[in-house]
């Protein structure tokens, strides 16, 4: 028996029928062709599939599609505000060399977004702790940690500017 669900992804509304065992990861990647979110393990251990549901990060490989009924999902494709512009997190990941093979990147960026939303001025230790659910096999994490602190600064600076204006 399929279930009918209504939900939004990156601001777009969807309404469709899904099997009760279908995961959010399958819903995004297979049904909506939003393949920016990756699948590294399928068991909640690597963080490559991390997305936001109503402002909180979840492992999309462990989340059932039916559970996002009525909710709003943000994926890496929704991170950049619009068109050409990049989110400061994306910009700093590119600049600092935090991306090698890129397979962990979407999950890392979503975890970084969650971290900075809750803690705009994280210490290095807090950043490392915030990434403890995201595995990377290429970078040794250092440039990712650097990217997140650069992004934090960037975001704080632009908030300041906004306030001053």
């Amino acid at each position: 028996m399929k279930h009918h669900i209504n939900f939004s992804v990156n601001g777009d509304d969807y309404s469709l029928a899904v099997d009760p065992w279908r995961t959010l990861n399958e819903l995004l990647r297979e049904d909506l062709n939003l393949t920016g979110t990756k699948l590294g393990c399928g068991t909640g251990d690597c963080g490559a599939c991390t997305v936001m549901v109503d402002g909180r990060t979840v492992s999309s490989c462990l989340t059932l599609a039916v559970s996002v009924n009525g909710k709003s999902v943000t994926t890496v494709e929704g991170l950049a505000p619009s068109g050409e512009e990049l989110h400061p997190i994306q910009e700093s990941f590119i600049k600092t060399g935090a991306i090698q093979c890129g397979f962990c990147t979407a999950g890392m960026e979503m975890s970084a977004l969650h971290l900075l939303n809750n803690n705009p001025e994280p210490t290095e230790k807090e950043i490392r702790a915030g990434l403890s659910g995201n595995l990377c096999r290429c970078t040794g994490y250092n440039q990712i940690v650097e990217a997140i602190s650069v992004a934090a600064e960037q975001i704080r600076d632009s908030e300041h500017e906004k306030e001053e204006r």
């Binding site: 393949t35 890496v76 950049a80 990049l86 994306q90 590119i94 060399g97 991306i99 890129g102 990147t105």
Partner: peptide, 17 residues
Amino acid sequence: PRTDAEAKARGTAIYTD
């Protein structure tokens, strides 16, 4: 910067799966 970094940062880089 890596020339493929932006596509990877945006989630638009296509892997086999």
